[in-house]
Design a protein around this nucleic acid. Structure first.
Lengths: 229, 229
DNA sequence: TTTTAATATAATGAG
DNA sequence: CTCATTATATTAAT
């Protein structure tokens, strides 16, 4: 990743004092030991700190600083990881939501069909058998029999004939929400995401237009995350 | 945020060379101007860079570096923002998913009821009107009449009597997924999230146990994010 | 009062 | 330029 002594090989050595006092980069072996130690313990006891420093021919101070910075770095990485996991979960859920919605539509169709058929049968039944009620699906039928299935939804179970017509489903805003999914799209999805928080105005109070930084088709981490990579 | 000259007020001034050569902190006014400029343009043209540097009595180089670092900082902040937005979207979607699932159950109940009623009517009908088919809900009826509603789901629309029974719904794994939602919970949610990526083993290859760093109930940014703050 | 963790920031070098 | 890294300074907490 980096050479052990890159300073002397550079052409412009502005301040040699840096090389004498400040070792700007740790050697590969030093990094390796530090990483190993970090894996076992993200925070060093003063005990092990001085010991590790001696082993690596470093002052305890740079070792401590390295651990501090390492923790900060690791935290940022975790955030990215969490984001990706969450995005994956969102996509999975959105996919299942779509399936469920389609299944729901199928159920509605089936219900319409049955209601229609029953209506027809009722008409036929009058011709055949007089005014005998063909099927008992009035509202009283619901409340008396199977209330335990749908008790928390008073507006969901409306036992009249037209309860589950198609127009009913968007009352919850399903369709509008499913549009903002994070399916492995690219810049468009990021757009949707940001438009939620920035309602199309150019308020830049510490909230600068992100497109200027992440410009489309660059490899910034944020763009990669949103794009699904 | 910081005083313009904090160095001389400190008791321990180890290296006065810092104060002479290295101006370790920009003054408040310099920061203010830089922030203002950053809000209008996240990247400086070389033209404006030298101009701004002259106004602030700085070399162009530190100004350029400040913008670079500022962009990096802003990007990290954006990641946090994106994460929160995504988490909110996930919760919204999960909530709607729950509603839709309940609605689905209501539809299933309704269908069961209708089917039952129709079955009863069929039996009654035989006594009343002989072997005349009461309602036409055979599979042939579906394909011939209303196929446009449910064409992409061959397994969804199964016109037999037992298609939409309760056992059918978990075939898609809805219930298992809805458990991992990010409703404004606390450490528990973070646990769920992490358990997806770390399948309970203690593999630490650059993936140290995050709890050692973020520990439960501390205020690290990741913990805050996951907790919904 | 001293030390340290966390954080923000300045600066450097590699790609 | 971006990105990762080293280092310093400040603040809060012990």
């Amino acid at each position: 990743m980096m050479s052990a002594d890159p300073f002397m090989t550079m052409k412009k050595i502005k301040k040699s004092s840096h090389n004498e006092k400040n070792q700007r980069r740790f050697s590969d072996e030093q990094i390796k030991s530090l990483e190993m130690m970090f894996e076992s313990e993200t925070r060093l006891e003063p005990r092990k700190k001085v010991q590790l420093a001696r082993e690596l021919s470093l002052q305890p101070r740079p070792v401590a600083i390295w651990f501090q910075n390492k923790r900060a770095r690791w935290k940022s990485k975790q955030l990215e990881t969490e984001f990706n996991i969450l995005r994956q979960n969102y996509n999975d859920l959105a996919s299942q939501f779509e399936s469920l919605k389609k299944e729901n539509q199928g159920l509605v169709s089936e219900l319409d069909r049955l209601n229609e058929a029953i209506q027809t049968k009722q008409d036929e039944g009058r011709e055949c058998c007089g005014d005998q009620t063909v099927v008992a699906l009035s509202s009283t039928d619901h409340e008396s029999e199977k209330e335990e299935n749908t008790k928390p939804e008073p507006e969901e179970v409306r036992p009249e004939m037209e309860v589950y017509e198609k127009g009913h489903h968007d009352d919850y805003g399903y369709n509008s929400h499913i549009k903002r999914e994070y399916f492995g799209g690219f810049e468009e999805e990021a757009d949707h995401l940001m438009n939620i928080v920035e309602p199309a105005d150019s308020c830049l109070t510490s909230s600068v237009d992100w497109r200027e930084v992440f410009g489309p088709a660059n490899d910034s981490s944020m763009a990669r995350i949103l794009a699904g990579f």
